[in-house]
Amino acid sequence: MDLVEKALAGDRRALARLLSLVEDDSPQAQEALAVLHPHTGRAHIVGVTGAPGTGKSTLVNELAKRLRARGTTVGIVAVDPTSPFTGGAILGDRVRMRDLAGDPGIFIRSMATRGSLGGLARATGDAVKVLDAVGFQTILVETVGVGQAEVDVARTAHTVVVVEAPGLGDDVQALKAGLLEIADILVVNKADRPGAGQTALALEATLGLGWNNSNAADGWRPPILKTVALDGTGVEAVVEAIDAHRAFLQQSGLWVQKEQERVRADLMQALHREMLDRLIEQVGEAEIDRWVGRIVAREVDVYTAVESLLERPE
């Protein structure tokens, strides 16, 4: 694995090639990840998520600048959506990350979702592992602009920053399940706009309710921080909150627990894919099509078909 050795030695071209192998799900990627695995587990993985247009990319840019100012190396994986119709994608997060150009302590990779629906690409987790293995100390994972239920980032990141902006909805939105529940840090960006105070208050009220029951066991209450990412106002406080959350995870033992949960989810997902691939290979696409036909013709239902497919003799 020449590529892996080069990447571990700091070759950025090799790193970029490795990330492509992982993204394209190539057989070499599995070998590479196996070699890289012992080198992983050192980075602080920070997810940045929120609705489209709340300022995620701009915030990531500002966070990275501040992390670099104190000497932390930063890997960035920025995810944008793939068109469900053409398979193409516009990956535009770099537009907001101009300030980070020319710094060897930073590596930015844009990724298309390629059909994944949880706010990340299938390969995002593996891309993060690659960046972790080659030594980036903090890895910022920016999700696609999400709605309410795309919460995959919570399984990939140690610390999740949820970015909100004023004017996106009333306080009932803040009551709903999903995105807010995965927040370790809440940022109300564009805080120079009208309604920012109200948004923060609505979040505060919701969090107050939640914190009294479900999250109380953790002992971490997500801070609500106001920022204007465009000019950097308030971003230092977000960096401090990210540090504080890391310290909290490590002291409380949750770092290890989260790692175990993450690895379990990872293992389950890999098993799921591998078993499905093997089954399809074994029975053949034609057989699957035959069952689809039978289901459409109302001869059998989906669950009967599954039972039959799984019970086929070797």
Binding site: T86, G88, I90, L91, G92, R94, S110
Partner: peptide
């Protein structure tokens, strides 16, 4: 993009 490519726009 419409032709199915991933386009990184800077």
């Amino acid at each position: 993009r419409d032709a199915g490519m991933e386009v990184i726009y800077t």
